[in-house]
């Protein structure tokens, strides 16, 4: 199978996952959504009638009035297609179509920084912050991890190697968010170096906004890097220690190429394919963890938006945020898959 065909088949699988996730999301929120919409219509009709005392006065008994209201409510429900259940093929199709075309509608409770209730606008506001935090963290983690892992892997069994392995096992046992709580406790409350809440205190229009954003980002960034780089170094170390045993390394050492140069150019280049692949995968993993991490630090990104939407049961935001999170998650999984297939043709040949 050629790379293009392999990539296409992976992309098809990912679209299937995306569709499945959208369907699951709609299934989970669908019935609640209908109830809320119907209540909204009922309230709307009554508010309109309250502003029109002449019509209200024309009814003889409360029963007549109620029957009239029920009639109008029914009419509007039919107009909106709410007379069919959410799982009817027509409505399900409409819902899926709307989500896929990024038409998420308006939020029920939440608003963006500018007060907008459009779900797309809210998401567009939060998404860059999540990407900023997590790509910066992943870049820093992989840089430290690759250098440290190369050092450890080139001298298997040495003191730095054993320290790296021990640190990797220990740091992977700590939940990131708990280390975050500790960091806030230490660096925000005990020693007041960084702010405890990561929401920038300046409006986005202020010239100092970028600096404020970076200052507020420091604590979550430090935490993510601190917890993340150990297991990265361990991974790179394992790839490297295998490569350092290869004949070509011994040959290069024999013709007098300095060890440092062998490790950081020749060996590391050979270890690059799996490293790049895992890099793409780890980005998707960290995006999933954004919900808890952003909640701890109060970082105003997608993860916190999702959590706020869930706790307030703001259904349009839940649907929109799930979709966008899933798209990004799948994009990085797809990137990892294609890189893997590119570097390792055996995978394609299955």
């Amino acid at each position: 199978m050629g790379l293009a065909r392999y990539a296409a088949s992976r992309a098809a699988a990912m679209s299937g996952v995306l569709l499945a996730t959208v369907l699951i999301t709609i299934a989970v929120v669908g019935s609640n959504m209908d109830v809320i919409l119907k209540q909204g219509i009922s309230v709307q009709v009554r508010t309109e009638l309250a502003a029109d005392p002449a019509t209200v006065a024309s009814f003889g008994t409360p029963e007549e009035f109620e029957a009239y209201v029920a009639g109008i409510v029914r009419e509007r429900e039919v107009l909106l297609g709410l007379d069919e259940p959410w799982y009817s093929p027509l409505r399900l199709g409409q819902s899926v179509y709307r989500v896929i075309t990024l038409d998420f509608g308006h939020a029920t409770f939440l608003t963006g920084d500018t007060g907008s209730t459009s779900v797309s606008e809210i998401i567009l506001e939060k998404l860059p912050r999540t990407i900023l935090l997590f790509t910066t963290a992943t870049a820093a983690i992989s840089l430290i991890g690759i250098l440290l892992g190369a050092l450890a892997g080139s001298r298997a069994g040495s003191a730095p190697d054993r320290a790296t392995s021990a640190f990797a096992v220990a740091s992977s046992s700590f939940p990131v968010w708990w280390v975050g709580i500790l960091m806030i406790f230490l660096l925000a409350f005990t020693y007041q170096v960084f702010p405890a809440r990561s929401t920038p205190d300046l409006p986005p229009t202020d010239p100092g906004y970028a600096a404020s954003l970076l200052y507020h980002m420091a604590l979550p960034l430090i935490t993510l890097v601190l917890v993340g780089f150990g297991s990265w170094a361990y991974l790179v170390r394992n790839f490297m220690s295998g490569i350092m045993r290869e004949d070509f390394v011994a040959a290069k050492a024999a013709i007098g190429i300095p060890r440092r140069r062998i490790v950081y150019t020749h060996a590391l280049r050979n270890a690059a394919p799996p490293i790049v692949t895992v890099l793409a995968l780890s980005l998707s993993g960290s995006l999933g963890g954004a919900i808890i991490t952003e909640a701890v630090f109060d970082w105003p990104g997608m993860g916190r938006l999702y959590f706020e939407a869930i706790t307030a049961l703001d259904l349009p935001v839940i649907v929109g945020a799930t979709f966008v999170l899933t798209v990004f998650f799948l994009a990085s999984v797809l990137a990892a898959d294609i890189l893997y297939g590119y570097f390792d043709p055996r995978i394609r040949a299955r």
């Binding site: 699988a13 299937g16 996952v17 499945a20 989970v28 929120v29 999933g288 945020a321 799930t322």
Partner: peptide, 23 residues
């Protein structure tokens, strides 16, 4: 294995959060 690939790519945490609240 195709089904496994699909399951592999499902973002677990957002769905877990959603299921915890709704179910």
């Amino acid at each position: 294995m195709r089904l496994n690939d699909v399951a592999y790519a499902i973002p677990a945490l957002p769905l877990l959060v959603m299921l915890a609240v709704t179910v």
